[in-house]
């Protein structure tokens, strides 16, 4: 059996692009040091920051939450977790349980927002009513609610769980469809737009999906290893994931090389063309005078539900014990 290249204990993983075998302890250290390096290389957080971590219950957001809750004590930033209950049957019940267990174990405050409580419908019901694919409605609602909660708690950044595999695939898809102005959105960090949207950071930018799984497993961070029942394995993204990983097996390191180089070239890609404006109903980020969440809910229920969502989230987050803000000097 292979031995750890650092200490000689039995190995649990072969990091092929580094030509190293690692034992449990050194794999955990390796993933943490990789995240720490990415966070400093891409200047993701500063002391005094308030970071919102949306957790789905899956391995990637569990890993982000575990590492950030540890780093937050070292660097002096604040971490708040958010779970969105999508109402996708038993899958959402288990996802919520896993999120609660992870946040509980790590001692991170958790906000739970239910799509059904806010809109009166679950995600599958909203999709049916809107006659739109369920994954597109789900993405829209999640992006909206994540930004809304981040704005309401005055967060400085939202830490997403996208790993290197996800980002390599999204980038490849943007190349294939020549949606080049999507590429700047896939970088390790996007900036906040004051009053409208909170910027995102991706601590797992250089962490492979397999490493993220092993980290969550070996640190005993609770997570749900189950697929959403709506997942389509024949989607472009999922087919690309298979192909990129065949290439990675032949050419270890290809995913990291691609992402590191992309991060350097982001400024050279075209900026998104949509104008930045404010939704007339809810006051949050929109590309026209009505944001996509208010439009979707207006078409389904007869009235835009952004303002109601803001009120509900305000009352949900009012009981959070947030660290006092020193001043706005931290904000860039």
């Amino acid at each position: 059996m292979a031995r750890c290249s650092v200490c000689g204990s039995p190995a649990v993983a072969h990091i092929r692009y580094q030509r190293r075998y690692l034992c449990e302890r050194h794999l955990i250290e390796y993933v943490e040091s990789k995240i720490r390096r990415s966070m400093s290389r891409y200047k993701m957080v500063r002391p005094g920051y308030r970071v919102l971590v949306p957790v789905s219950g899956g391995k990637d957001s569990a890993t982000v939450l575990a590492v950030l809750s540890r780093l937050s004590r070292e660097t002096g930033f604040e971490v708040i977790a958010l779970h969105i209950d999508l109402g996708i049957g038993e899958y959402s019940v288990k996802s919520k349980e896993a999120s609660m267990k992870a946040a509980g174990k790590l001692g991170v405050p958790l906000v739970i927002v239910s799509v059904k409580e806010i809109t009166g419908y679950t995600i599958p019901e909203l999709a049916r009513k809107a006659k739109r694919p369920v994954c597109s409605v789900c993405g829209l609602v999640k992006r909206y609610l994540i930004n809304l909660v981040a704005m309401e708690i005055d967060a400085d950044a939202v830490a997403l769980g996208h790993n290197a595999d996800d980002l390599a695939v999204y980038s490849m898809k943007s190349f294939i469809t020549q949606d080049l102005s999507n590429l700047p959105k896939l970088g390790p960090k996007t900036e906040s737009i004051p009053g409208l949207a909170v910027g995102r950071i991706r601590p797992l930018y250089e962490v492979y999906e397999k490493e993220s799984y092993l980290y969550a497993l070996l640190t005993g961070t609770p997570f749900l290893h189950e697929e959403c029942p709506n997942v389509d394995f024949n989607s472009m993204e999922n087919r690309l994931k298979v192909h990129i990983n065949s290439l990675e097996e032949e050419k270890p390191g290809v995913k990291i090389t691609m992402l590191r180089n992309m991060a350097k070239r982001i400024k050279d890609y075209p900026k998104p063309k949509l104008p930045i404006s404010k939704c007339k109903h809810c006051g949050l980020l929109s590309s026209g005078d009505e944001c996509s969440f208010c439009r979707l809910t207006r078409r389904i229920t007869g009235r835009p539900l952004g303002p109601k969502a803001r009120e509900a989230v305000r009352s949900l987050t009012s009981s959070l014990q947030l660290a006092p803000r020193q001043d706005s000097a931290y904000k860039s």
Partner: peptide, 8 residues
């Protein structure tokens, strides 16, 4: 045997 790639 665990498939670590999740669908997206």
């Amino acid at each position: 045997v665990v498939r670590v790639l999740s669908g997206g």
